[in-house]
């Protein structure tokens, strides 16, 4: 699995988008999440499971700065 086009070494069966956000401390309030280019809405983060070949993009929009 890829996270932001980098290999993600912590993939496991049943891993969800929410798990990845939590494990990486992705707490920024403005995230755009896509799996294989398909937009995932926040209400689906808990249920969206990731496959071994998936490309997960978690795009942090600017702000701050």
């Amino acid at each position: 699995m890829q996270l932001n086009n980098r290999p993600y070494s912590h993939w496991r069966e049943g891993l969800t988008v929410r798990d990845v956000l939590d494990e990486n401390h992705f707490t920024w309030p403005k995230l755009v999440v896509k799996v294989n280019k398909t937009l995932i809405w926040p209400e689906d983060y808990n249920s969206q499971e990731l496959l071994e070949g998936d490309n997960l993009e978690v795009i942090h929009l600017l702000g701050g700065g």
């Binding site: 932001n4 980098r6 992705f26 942090h60 929009l61 600017l62 701050g64 700065g65």
Partner: peptide, 18 residues
């Protein structure tokens, strides 16, 4: 001063500008 370019997330986290 970061007012010209604040690119940390685009680069470090999002990997949008590799």
């Amino acid at each position: 001063q970061h007012d010209e370019a604040w690119l940390i997330f685009m680069d470090q986290v999002n990997n949008q500008i590799p």
